[in-house]
């Protein structure tokens, strides 16, 4: 455990690069990513952990960056949508029409990408549980389900 008192200089690793930042102890990761690093792929949707538009990966696991303090990111590897390098799920989302307005997309991509890495062969119930963390208001969700399944089935180059 480390302790921050007042504004402090910290280093966090995002998309495999180290960044030295001045933060308040109360700063949330979402705001730091967007306002200080200009990584606006993670979106604010509710700032309450209900919608998942702000999802990023922390050591490979999806985390709602509105519910995580920036200080908690020290020593961990953060991946945002900008850090996805031609991940199969990105192509799958395009081919399956798994987004319309695109605002929830970054968050869903991060959840799906992590799911494919952590559970390469999940039963449907696991997919449902993982993806229930996020909200999409445009699609019917079926498209997103098809996209993740095409990735899990290795149908994407």
């Amino acid at each position: 455990m480390f302790c921050l008192k007042g504004k402090s200089l910290i280093t966090i690793n995002v998309n495999e690069e180290d960044y030295e930042l001045l933060i308040r102890p109360s700063d949330i990761l979402l705001d730091t990513l967007r306002n200080q690093l200009g990584l606006t792929g993670a979106k604010p949707g509710c700032n309450n952990g209900d919608c998942g538009t702000c999802t990023v990966l922390v050591n490979g696991w999806p985390v709602k960056s509105c519910l995580m303090l920036t200080a908690e990111a020290v020593g961990k590897k953060i991946t945002t949508v900008e850090g996805l390098k031609a991940a199969p799920i990105q192509k799958a989302f395009i081919e399956q029409f798994a987004f319309q307005c695109g605002y929830c997309t970054s968050g869903f991509l991060m959840v799906c990408h992590a799911l494919a890495g952590i559970h390469p062969d999940p039963p449907d119930i696991v997919i449902d549980e993982w993806l229930q963390s996020n909200i999409c208001r445009c699609t019917s969700y079926e498209e997103i389900g098809t996209a993740i399944r095409t990735v899990l089935d290795g149908k994407i180059e």
């Binding site: 989302f93 395009i94 987004f99 695109g102």
Partner: peptide, 21 residues
């Protein structure tokens, strides 16, 4: 037809109003 802005939307590059900071 794949939507014109598809790749911007799956890479975090599509900018929405409050992304202009």
């Amino acid at each position: 037809v794949i939507r014109k802005e598809a790749w911007e939307k799956v890479t975090g590059q599509a900018k929405y109003t409050d992304d202009f900071i």
